[in-house]
Design a protein around this nucleic acid. Structure first.
Lengths: 340, 340
DNA sequence: TAGGCTTGTGTAATCGATTACTCAGGCTCG
DNA sequence: CGAGCCTGAGTAATCGATTACACAAGCCTA
């Protein structure tokens, strides 16, 4: 049973076979009420018989809508974004949209290229995560030909934005550590100059100021990776004024810190309490399990998706929204000072 | 600076502005050599001036190609698939394709619906991972209107398939454990009846037979999760004839086993050597770090993508290919019997 | 110098759907 | 009984690109 090069079955073929006009077929398929019962049934039966499916390209060309959403992340391999992807996939499916996944690889040029390409109209809307917005990107965002929702740090430009109060959350982390008995804090941050690094630092400093706790060091990581965390920790933990409480700007950095502690034979949480940010799967897999601040990626993905759909349908017509989602601290072994 | 509801800039607008025909504009943009230098330059300058981008829908309608690939996974949240997604995203981007991500949630009905929907021609080709193929799905696969490549277990149906010799790999795991000194083996498998579970079991049994090592137990997990692994391990490790070498059908199950060992105060690898399958990030994050069999998801994703592109371009016209990729064993602490 | 070739450009058909407009027939109402 | 309205269905314009075909101009050759 070789599959014969399928001859295309178009709406015209259906119309002919059913002995009606293409208009009627289209109306039946799009649920137009004003079609007689007889025609309606005939069309349905022919559609089944010929296994007809409307051509997506023709439909979009005419209707000026693609039925597609796009998600741009700066690094697909980052497990934190996996939650956004999964959540968004769910929302898209519910709304009968397809989901396009694009990766900018963290490069601004690539981000710009993607935003430019929106002019091709292959998507009805875009969701974007980004850590850094240059003026070009800001410009492209505000003149985008389709609705855009940003997940991440707030900006001054008029774009919908689903954010969390990361500084407030990190501040809470500091309080948690101090409440547990830490008296000398430090931070391993991401690369300076990025928005997330800045906001986490702000929270850390605010928290430390709240409780008048001395800070022994703040080190910027080379990047956001485990290896960067290890390097920073190595440099930091061999000093005399070693901290007893350490906030890491994300879980990967924290994992690196745990590696370093292992090598240096520093007990966690006995000698040093550690906390991360993102609450990725890794946090509950590593040993000791990592206390981590959840930035609600899944929820933000869901909200972003819903908002985007509302924008597309015109259900929301107001100015740019700024939605702030709560963070939550997941306390695990790595900061159980009392229990050590 | 309010953004004015962008009037559409079509190829006709460009043609008018440049004082040439739409045909010429199209030719210039598609790199047709037979266009005079003057027109070529004029068109390029007008395109820049008007910021023109060809409409994707119109282009696909005419050219019968969408510039899109689709990936269907049965569970997006599964980190093992993340590697496929990332690899495929790379291949797609290289080939100037966009990547669609669809999730079947592991439901056969959903898979079927996705395959049916291919008739809408929103994609030029499909890559699919699946653990279970019912007759309907097989049928849909072999009559699909676009090329399809399957990543996973081989089938009898004529479809391109990128697979690994999982049994052979698992057999190697058994040899590794026995070489390290294990004398009594056990396995924690996934749910019976699934293809992956069957192939891993085959490999396990073959390996044990090779070396005449006694098997103390093979338990099927409720599913593929960490919790299922913990439950199975709890049941298994309290028995008298406790194994000293344990093969887990995936990393999540293995993590659960490690949890159980922790609770029961069984030393890994001292009292029990443990190995997993998939070599996910988790394997290098957990403690002890987990020895794991890499099933080369990333590589298979890459190969699948390339093959799909070749099918689409017609570069490969032969019958269905069956490509087998090598597995590799990543030895880590959890099976270092000598070093314990 | 006429006929044929090459080159460059324009005209218009085409892809497959949706929908504004048109029209025929049956109904109501003055 | 005819004007006006409603219903149901068909005709054809439309979306925005690509490309087969037509054709004009310039060049070469016999």
């Amino acid at each position: 049973m070789v599959s014969i090069p399928h001859e295309r079955v178009t709406i015209l073929a259906v119309a002919d076979r059913a002995g009606v006009s293409t208009a009627s077929v289209s109306r039946v398929l799009n649920g137009d009420e004003r079609v007689g019962l007889e025609i309606r049934q005939k069309v349905h039966s022919v559609v089944r018989e010929l296994n007809y499916r409307p051509n997506a390209a023709a439909r979009s060309l005419r209707s000026q809508a693609t039925g597609q959403l796009a998600l741009v992340v700066d690094d697909i391999a980052n497990p934190a974004y996996l939650e956004i992807v999964a959540a968004l996939q769910g929302v898209a499916q519910e709304g009968s949209y397809r989901l396009l996944l694009q990766s900018s690889g963290g490069s601004e040029a690539e981000e710009l290229a993607i935003l430019e390409s929106l002019g091709q109209r292959y998507t009805d809307g875009l969701i974007m995560t980004s850590t850094r917005f240059g003026p070009d990107v800001q410009d492209a965002l505000s003149t985008a030909p389709v609705p855009v929702v940003v997940i991440g740090s707030c900006l001054d430009i008029p774009v919908d934005c689903i954010t969390v109060d990361a500084p407030e959350g990190v501040r809470g982390v500091v309080h948690h550590l101090v409440d547990g008995g830490c008296g000398r804090l430090a931070m391993v941050n991401g690369p300076g100059g990025t928005l997330p690094a800045r906001s986490r630092l702000d929270g850390f400093l605010a928290g430390a100021a709240d409780v008048f706790t001395p800070i022994s060091a703040v080190l910027d990581g080379r990047d956001w990776t485990r290896e960067a965390g290890r390097e920073a920790a190595m440099a930091m933990l061999e000093r005399q004024d070693r901290p007893d409480g350490l906030v890491c700007a994300n879980d990967q950095l924290a994992l690196g810190v745990l590696d370093a502690c292992h090598e240096l034979d520093i007990g966690v949480p006995g000698d040093l309490a550690v906390a991360g940010v993102d609450n990725t799967r890794d946090a509950s897999v590593c040993r000791p399990r990592l206390t981590s601040l959840d930035l609600s990626f899944a929820e933000r993905g869901r909200i972003a998706g819903r908002l985007l759909l509302d924008r597309i349908s015109g259900a929301v017509a107001d100015g740019p929204q700024r939605i702030r989602v709560d963070t939550s601290l997941h306390v695990r072994e790595s900061s159980h000072l009392g229990g050590a």
